[in-house]
């Protein structure tokens, strides 16, 4: 006769412990130790050198430029994302799946290739190059090109987060509002927007994190001139390659803080609403 076995829910405790140790060990090797290292490296000589690094003019300019980029790109992609989400979630039309995959495309294209595409459109020998040159407008190696590159890589986030929410809430409330005499704008502001606010917040949060942290696409189109077209991620790489490790880490802490804020807000929203962001 078989002996009575423990049920799988009460499997051997040592296996339990082993699997937990492996999981935490792997996370530590790949994520946690490197994350702790950022803080250690920035502060291991004390707070004063850290603050001094933060006061360098090139660094301050990089911070300003990074925020300016996000300030332009996030609203742009938010308006587009809301329009695209509404168009896709509220309509059935031929080519709908194609439109959906098109919106996702920037996630699968290498950022460097994205930057290259922009150079081939707006660069000196690009499609619009001579035309832009005649009008004396610089796109590549200046702010407009960096906006385009950043907007390209962070384009899908808002639409991806809002579409499932819009589909889930359905149209009943919107139609009720309209029966009661609300116009399109009133319906959007008073009914649709409050319903999708968490999804929208997720989308904006992820757009912002990507916009401030983008490296490859911006590196290609910006020319990476310190104090001129250098964002924080570019500043980090530049400082590191020039053996200026301490200012690289001072800047890394600032961007790490951005990541921390992103994760904390995400966690709060998740606990409040129970929704998880789409990958």
């Amino acid at each position: 006769m078989r002996s009575v076995k423990s049920s799988p829910t009460q499997e051997k405790p040592w296996l339990h412990a082993l699997l937990i140790v492996i999981a935490i060990g792997y996370l530590a090797l790949v994520l946690l130790i490197p994350a702790a290292n950022v803080i250690f490296q920035a502060f291991h000589k004390g707070v004063v050198p850290f603050v001094q690094n933060l006061l360098e003019p090139d660094f301050l300019h990089a911070v300003w430029l990074t925020f300016a980029l996000a300030l332009v790109v996030v609203p742009l992609n938010m308006v587009f994302g809301l329009c695209a989400a509404w168009a896709i979630a509220r309509h059935r039309f031929p080519g709908r799946t194609l439109l959906l995959s098109m919106i996702d495309l920037p996630f699968s294209i290498s950022p460097v290739v994205a930057g290259l595409m922009l150079v081939l459109v707006y660069g000196r020998n690009g499609w619009f190059g001579s035309w832009l040159h005649a009008l004396d407008i610089r796109v590549i190696f200046s702010f407009p090109g960096m906006v385009l590159a950043t907007a390209f890589v962070s384009l899908p986030f808002v639409a991806r987060e809002v579409i499932p929410v819009l589909e889930e809430i359905g149209t009943e409330q919107e139609e009720a509002a309209k029966t009661l005499g609300a116009n399109e704008w009133q319906t959007f502001w008073r009914v649709t927007l409050p319903n999708i606010r968490w999804g929208l917040l997720y989308g904006v949060l992820l757009t912002n994190a990507r916009a401030m942290g983008e490296f490859g696409a911006v590196a290609v189109v910006s020319g990476n001139v310190a104090g001129l077209t250098q964002t924080l991620p570019l500043f980090i790489e530049d400082a590191y390659k020039n053996y200026n490790t301490e200012s690289a880490y001072a800047a890394a802490v600032i961007l790490g803080l951005l990541a921390l804020v992103t994760l904390v807000v995400k966690e709060i929203v998740e606990r409040k609403t129970g929704i998880k962001p789409k990958l």
Binding site: L31, P34, A35, N37, V38, Q41, L206, A209, M212, G213, E214, F215, G216, L232, P233, L234, I236, E237, Y240, A248, Y249, A252, L255, G256, L258, A259, L260, T262, L263, K266
Partner: peptide
């Protein structure tokens, strides 16, 4: 989710 939120330049550096 850290790799989604942490800029890749910081990841590479550390």
């Amino acid at each position: 989710d850290l790799p989604f939120a942490l800029p890749t330049a910081v990841a590479g550096l550390t």
